[in-house]
């Protein structure tokens, strides 16, 4: 746990935990249009149910590819996503519904995988990562969306890794600071500091 002071003076350590727990507990845990929650699917996955796992992967693969694009880069995103889900399957017996929302666990595994890839890669420049063509929308929408997303991605990849992860989880994945703290295993003050420094850097980079 970091001992950094809160840049916003938002909360004292004594009450951070309960606020964070409340936020995590309020997470809807990915109840999809098919009516079955991530938790329900994961309970079946834990028993070796491959069809339930296929549904979980299908439900979350876009999210994990997008996260990997932001944190590591486009060229590696598909491979990272595959490794993340294979790791989930290999470790399915370790998952306990009481330990937190499935998405929290998924993000933790994904970010550890992203960090591993970044460290293995060592000196590959991030800024010039080529776009992998893949089009779910029409040509005009693709052009605009790709241009903006690529610009933001390039800027995010220029800031330090922990700031990049905090910013990506908070803004791109729309998590709360408390959820980011839980996933990154940091206290709330440390996450707020990362968010503040990351936002300041990105304001300069994005003009």
């Amino acid at each position: 746990m970091s001992s950094e002071s809160s840049p916003a003076g938002i909360a004292l350590d004594g009450r951070i935990r309960s606020w964070a727990d409340d936020v995590i507990a309020a997470d809807p845990d990915g109840i999809s249009s098919d009516g079955e929650s991530d938790t329900a699917l994961m309970l079946r996955v834990r028993d070796g149910d491959r069809e339930a796992f296929r549904r979980l992967v299908t439900r979350h693969v876009d999210r994990i590819v997008g996260l990997a694009r932001r944190v590591v880069g486009s060229a590696e995103a598909d491979d990272i996503a595959q490794d993340v889900f294979l790791k989930l399957w290999a470790r399915r017996s370790q998952w306990e519904p009481r330990t937190g929302a499935f998405r929290t666990w998924l993000y933790r595994v994904a970010l550890n995988q992203c960090i591993d890839w970044t460290r293995k890669r060592k000196t590959v420049p991030l800024d010039g990562t080529p776009e992998v063509p893949d089009h779910a929308d029409g040509p005009m929408e693709i052009c605009d969306a790709h241009e903006t997303a690529a610009r933001v991605r390039a800027a995010v990849q220029k800031i330090p890794e922990r700031q990049r992860i905090a910013i990506t989880l908070y803004y791109h994945e729309d998590l709360t600071a408390a959820q980011v703290a839980t996933i990154m295993d940091l206290n709330l003050n440390a996450v707020e500091s990362l968010l503040k420094r990351g936002r300041k850097s990105l304001r300069v980079l994005l003009g």
Partner: peptide
């Protein structure tokens, strides 16, 4: 700007990724 979503996967590419994962279980 910070919330700009990443472009989604096409159905074909999503299906291919899911199939690859399931084959490697």
């Amino acid at each position: 700007q910070l919330r700009t979503p990443e472009p989604g996967l096409s159905p074909d590419r999503r299906a291919s990724l899911v199939d690859n994962i399931m084959k490697r279980l």
